[in-house]
Amino acid sequence: MALVFAGVASHAPGITGRSDRADPEVRDRFYAAYHEMAAAMRRTEPDALIVVAAEHFANFFMNNMPSFAIGMADFYDGPIEDPEWLGIDRVRVPGDRDLSRRLIERVMHHSDVSYAEEWKFDHGIMVPLHFLTPDYDLPVVPANINCQGPPLTPLHRAWTFGESLRAAADAVPERIALVGTGGISHWPATPDSGKINERWDREFLDRWTRNDRSALLDYDDGAIYRDAGQGGFEIRTFVAVSGAAGGATGTVHFYAPIPIFAVGCTIATYDLAGPGGAQGPVGGQRTAGEVGS
């Protein structure tokens, strides 16, 4: 039927795995913002949730690395990491193979995407789900952008991927929520882990909330690596959501560097009901023969 919700959120494993070591005041405000995002998403009555992630070599490796992938299964197991290390129990998350297939078929009209009938979730999806659907009662469609193994997906292709997801969401009868999850600046799992470039993050979020396409695409990976670390490559997931938002502007509900979580913790959404938000960027109308064939 439509894309009914679009937002972005952080996914660093420390968010759940090291929660006891963060400043409780900041941490609890962050968790509250995450839970409010979940409530806002539920108010839109979604039938399924697409998570645009930047997975970390849990499924995809340099032997066959897709620029884009979408899951097409009725269930997904996770987390792949040690549950105790991550602070999230192993679960089977519901998917919707039929919906995935219809979305993928439509996405393929504008973006070349790999599909995966098997996909193990790592922290990049499990941490957001821990807050957004803690009872795992909403079917999830995982999507991935290669943010890890260069050559990386170009930013403008991430934008187009978002547009393709929007067109697909608008073409199926279900109500679709979309959440991108990644960076922003961080240096995960390296000697610089814990460093956060707040100034860079706030500049990026300004571009993101204005949904300024040219400004969002005006980054190159050399500068991102220098200023925002290899974790900054994950802005691709945020940019995809911008592309899907069809001109809507956004609001940052929470941003604070939490070094113990190794990332500037972020919760932000687009106002799809506002000016520009209702526009389907590349044609949202379903046409006969395109769906479920």
Binding site: A12, G14, R18, A262
Partner: peptide
Amino acid sequence: APPGAAAERAGGQ
């Protein structure tokens, strides 16, 4: 990084 920051970093990813 101030002294002790390494320990703090240790909690993040």
